[in-house]
Structures are given as C-alpha cells and as structure tokens.
C-alpha cells in the first residue's frame, strides 16, 4: 500500500510539470497581451510607452525563457505578482479563497445530504408520482439558467418581500456590527447564492443515488437478504444504501478542485469576491501569473482528488483493496 501511494505521488510530479508547461504555452499563444487592455487604442499611449511596458513585463523574451523564469520561481512556491495590480498572486488567491471555500463546502454538504435523501425517496417510490415529481424538480434546477433564477429570487425576496439583502457578502456598515450581527448579516447575504448552487447541482447526486440503489436492489445478495427474512427497512438502509454510496466517493473526490473554484455567473450577479471572478478577470486581462497560479493549484487539487478518491475507494470497498503482487 505504501509503495503504491509513493508511486502515485511521484507520478504526479512529471504530470504537474507537463500540465503547467502546456497551460503556459497555450496561454501565451492566445492572442492578446497583458498590456493590451491598458494601452490599446488609447491615443494618449504612445507606441514607445507600450513597447516599454512589454519589456518591463518580460513579454519581449521567448516563451520558453519566460516559462523557465516562471517555473524556477514556482518551485519556491512563488507564483509571481499579478500584472494588473502588482500584488503577489498568492495574496490575491488567499484573499478570495475563504468566501469561495465557505460557500462551496456548505453547498456540497447540502447537495450530498439532500441529494442522497432525494435519491432514496426516488428509489423507494420508484416510478410513483413522488419519484416523478422529484425527477422533474431536479432537472428544472439543472436546466434553469442560474443568472435568471438569481434575478427572479432577488426580485421576490429582496425587493418585493424585503427579507434579504440583494448582493455582496456584507452590509455597508458591517465593520460596526457586533459579532452576532456580523454572523446574521453574512448568513442573510449567503442564503440566495447557496440556494442557487444547491438547486442547480442536486440532479447529479440524486439521480446517481437513485440509479445506484435500484441497481443494488436487483443484486443477488439482496435476494439472499430477503430470503433470510430481513425487513424491507433493514435491507434498504443497511444493505442497499451502504453499497450504493460507493460511487459517491468518486464524485466527492473529483469535486475537490471544485471547492476552490467558483461560478463566474453567480459571483458576478451577487457581487461575491470569489475565485471564479478572479479567474475570469485574470483571463480577460491576460494576467498570466494569476492564470498560471490558479491553473497549477487547480491541477494539483484535481490530481490529489483523484488520488484520494482511489485511496478512499480501497478503504471503503474491500474488494478493490490494493493487493501486493
């Protein structure tokens, strides 16, 4: 087991180098330079000033040279400074991470809990009215454009009813609140965005769960259990549910990189200063250091997520436990 883990971990290194090199080259090949937005078509910016800017950012050097420079810094965990405001990339990420992480963790926990419950209901009442109703609802959630739903809910809850604040993550005078009011204020601001995240993402887990349970129900060991005379309840919750949770482990492992990424749409509508907007803004401004920083961290987390899912798999399912050959 230990050699397996070490091998897997070591294999990540060349993979990570490969991913960062490809991303680096692709981003630099894409048309446009970080200096474009600042200078292009501004008649007050002379050609000389623009060339000077390119030189100062090191953009006049060959891409391979730029990659080498960037990579050597990255090895020291230094992702460089953002082109757009000169602040270190890691500082910018640190600033945005907590809110995205908080929203995503709350959302994923809710999605898993509600998704599993809906899946179980769907299986128990297979093809009955309630099953169909759930199916329709979760698919509506999936299909509905989140920006539209957001605006409709804002209109109802924030304007017509006035129960919730429209956007942002805190009120203008947040700093003068007591800790308790700060918490209430935050919660009020986050209700709608989290609801929209959850509503839009229920379909995956609930359908997965339902399907997986129905499949498990048809397995021979369930027949055995029935033959033993176990009650329906015990069969469903002890044998079927447990066995059906397996695929969830993979799903959750793969959602690890998703934890640090946010939705550009939801973050923009609710003016949440999260990771999704950071990435979007960086791409639009061709802010290479920030893009690369986010991509490398994303790649790393994806690989780790895969790896953890594999490990977790072997832990929860003895059949696929790693064997010494």
């Amino acid at each position: 087991m230990l050699t397996y883990i070490t091998k897997r971990l070591l294999a990540m290194i060349p993979l990570l180098i490969g991913i960062s090199f490809i991303s680096f080259v692709v981003i630099h090949l894409a048309p446009g330079k970080p200096t474009d937005l600042v200078t292009n078509l501004n008649p007050k910016v002379s050609l000389e000033a623009r060339m000077n800017l390119n030189k100062l950012y090191g953009l006049d050097k060959p891409v391979t040279h730029q990659f080498r420079m960037w990579f050597m810094r990255m090895l020291k965990l230094d992702f460089g400074e953002s082109f757009s405001d000169g602040r270190p990339v890691l500082v910018k990420i640190k600033e945005r991470l907590p809110i995205t992480l908080a929203i995503n963790i709350i959302a994923i926990v809710l999605i898993v809990i509600i998704g599993v419950i809906l899946g179980v209901i769907g299986c128990v009442f297979q093809d009955k009215f309630i099953d169909k109703l759930i199916t329709i609802l979760v698919f509506i959630g999936f299909a509905m454009p989140s920006f539209w739903l957001a605006l409709i809910l804002m209109d109802i809850f924030c304007i017509k009813l006035g129960w919730l604040p429209v956007l942002g993550i805190s009120s203008v005078d947040f700093d003068n609140f007591t800790p308790l009011f700060k918490l209430i204020d935050l919660a009020k601001h986050l209700v709608l965005p989290i609801f929209i995240y959850v509503f839009g993402s229920l379909v995956g887990i609930s359908r997965y769960m339902r399907q997986s349970m129905i499949e498990t129900l048809n397995k021979p060991f369930i027949l055995t259990a029935r033959a033993k005379g176990l009650s329906n309840r015990t069969i469903l919750f002890k044998h079927v549910l447990r066995n059906s949770l397996l695929p969830l482990v993979t799903l959750l492992g793969l959602s690890l990189p998703g934890l640090i990424s946010g939705s550009v749409i939801i973050e923009s509508i609710f003016a949440i200063p999260g990771m999704g907007r950071l990435f979007f803004e960086a791409v639009m401004a061709r802010d290479y250091p920030v893009i690369m920083g986010l991509l490398v961290i994303g790649a790393l987390l994806t690989m780790l997520g895969n790896f953890l899912a594999d490990i977790a798999y072997s832990v929860v399912d003895p059949r696929i436990r790693y064997k010494k050959s």
């Binding site: 995503n104 994923i108 999605i111 989140s146 995240y197 959602s255 998703g258 550009v264 999704g276």
Partner: peptide, 12 residues
Amino acid sequence: MKLGYNFINMRF
C-alpha cells in the same frame, strides 16, 4: 455539478 469555472455566460 455546476462547480467548475463557468464560461457559458462570458458573452453575457
């Protein structure tokens, strides 16, 4: 899951 970077709405 809709948790990835979402570019669908770039135009918007």
